[in-house]
Amino acid sequence: MSIVYWLTSSGLEKNMNRFLLLLFLLAIASCSPGNSSGDSVKYQQYFVQGEQLYNTHCSNCHQKSGKGLGLLYPPLDESDYMTNNLSSVICLIKYGKSGELIVNGKQYNQVMPGVPILTDLEIAEIATYIYNSWTHDEGLIEVAEVTKVLQQCEGED
């Protein structure tokens, strides 16, 4: 089946698009002045992988646009909570979160299920994606940092 898929034009086209996207991103990476880590290719890899993981695990509720949904799912595109709580965000991606949460002055209280199967690297990729999309511009989130934070998550297991 997969061979047929690869041979079909849409399959080829899709891969071509991906390839072009990668080329494009590499081109941007090679031109941009570079972020704090000074490792732009790594940043772009994290960002692209992070976007895919975001679309698999997060965007159902938080939307591809990061706008969330009403007072059910808080927004990520503009979020003082995200800006001020990087460690908590890393923990809640893996372990979930329940109870009251204030984002941009609004109260949210919907249980967010965690995704415990995510590896530290995958969480670093998701974090890099969401912290550099929409209004955010935090640069690369290193996997070493994620690993350190995850060892200190409190009562969220």
Partner: peptide, 15 residues
Amino acid sequence: TSCRTICPIMKTQML
């Protein structure tokens, strides 16, 4: 309401 798979997408679209 507790569905986390397709329902949030459905509710976004129904909205």
